[in-house]
Amino acid sequence: MIPLTYYLILSTIVFTIGLYGIMTQRNGVRLLMSVELMLNAANINLVAFSSYNDDMSGQVFVLFSIALAAAEAVIGFAILLSIYRMRDMIDVDNINLLRW
């Protein structure tokens, strides 16, 4: 039997990749992809815990989470689209309205 820790490490790796992407990528689409990675890392965790505790509700939650991720992606893309309309580009570097 594969130990639970392996799954958790996997999920951590995926999460860190997503994190790194969030921190470094300039392109808005890539950013959203990174967010998806992080979400999926969480999903892996959920499924793993669900299986190893013999409790199906975790897996049900993963389904919900995937659906929410879809909603989130939809909104994210919509925002990117309107940014693109305004500025003709989707590099988040230049979106610094929050600056001092």
Partner: peptide
């Protein structure tokens, strides 16, 4: 000056 407004740095 640290507050660049770039959300990524904040993250």
């Amino acid at each position: 000056k640290v507050q660049t407004g770039v959300v990524q740095s904040y993250a």
